[in-house]
């Protein structure tokens, strides 16, 4: 089983927003980062993976199984962390564990207490007194205590301070050590991904722009800077989007080899960060 999650041609329509024909595969044993602006469809896609939403068309498969016949088996194998606290606010962690633990066949109480200790979480304080970071740690402790094979996280780092974000990323890397776990997480803070993501899926306006390895992203995409007079209708086709200024142009390409052929040494090429890519795509695609 190479793909843990498979979305095949998935569509979902809402009033004023829709997810269009998404094909997304999440590879086992790797970290896949799911990026996109706010409102691009990240949460909707994750909800379809969790069967909180059902697609209008297309197939959703996890571990090669579908939700119609294997809902419980699938969810048994998923650990989830959402951007807001989904646990009953007035309860303390001990009671939340009492509610959640019996739902899982493979719940591991020793493991849970190890994480509670590691994250320095109080068991007897109500969860609404927790800081944002502590709430995230609590969700994570629960998500990790039933030997989940797939960890799905929706914006886990949103609203966290940089130090805690680093800690989290280190923790996620530790989880990846045994090679069987898969992590899928959405974020709009792309610097989180530069460090640890193996694959990047990029969604914009309900459509998947690309889903590829971080190497392919850095090899295909680049920032190109040069003199305005180098641009004409033909040469512009090499770019996703061009910003013009009186001092020159700056553009994003998704085909570095083509740009090298066309412009040679007349332009400056730089590595495009994920943020650059998101920013230029927002400007619209000139060619398809």
């Amino acid at each position: 089983m190479e793909n843990v999650v498979e979305l095949i041609n998935v569509s979902k329509k809402f009033k004023g927003f829709s997810i269009k024909n998404i094909d997304l595969h999440v590879k086992q044993g790797f970290v896949t980062g799911f990026i996109g602006a706010n409102g691009a469809g990240k949460s909707t896609t994750i909800k379809m993976m969790m069967n909180l939403l059902r697609p209008d068309a297309g197939e959703v498969k996890l571990f090669g199984l579908d939700y119609q016949t294997n809902e419980k088996d699938i969810k048994e194998r998923i650990g989830f962390v959402y951007d807001s606290n989904v646990f009953f606010e007035g309860l303390n962690l001990k009671d939340i564990k009492r509610i959640v633990a019996p739902a899982y066949r493979r719940w591991d109480d020793t493991l849970f207490h190890q994480y509670v200790e590691k994250f320095e979480l109080p068991l007897n304080k109500s969860i609404k007194t927790f800081s944002k970071g502590m709430q995230m740690k609590a969700s994570l402790a629960i998500a990790l205590s039933h030997h989940a094979e797939l960890i799905i996280m929706d914006e886990p780092t949103a609203g966290l301070d940089p130090i805690f974000r680093r800690e989290l990323l280190g923790l996620l890397q530790e989880l990846m050590l045994d090679g069987t776990r898969t992590i899928f997480f959405s974020t709009h803070i792309t610097t989180d991904l530069d460090r640890i993501a193996d694959y990047i899926a990029f969604i914009q306006r309900g459509e998947l722009v690309f889903s590829k390895s971080i190497h392919d992203v850095t090899e295909d995409y680049a920032l190109v800077k040069g003199r305005i007079d180098l641009l004409d209708r033909d040469t512009e086709k090499a770019f996703v989007h061009v910003h013009r200024a009186p001092t020159g142009f700056e553009a994003l390409t998704d085909n570095t080899t083509e740009v090298k052929e066309i412009f040679g040494d007349t332009v400056v090429m730089e590595r495009a960060s994920l943020e650059d890519i998101m920013y230029y795509f927002k400007g619209g695609i000139h060619h398809v």
Binding site: M50, L52, K72, D73, K75, Y82, V86, F87
Partner: peptide, 12 residues
């Protein structure tokens, strides 16, 4: 949130 939680756990 409660419905999200319950439906994310292994329940139908």
């Amino acid at each position: 949130e409660t419905n999200i939680l319950l439906n994310s756990l292994p329940y139908k």
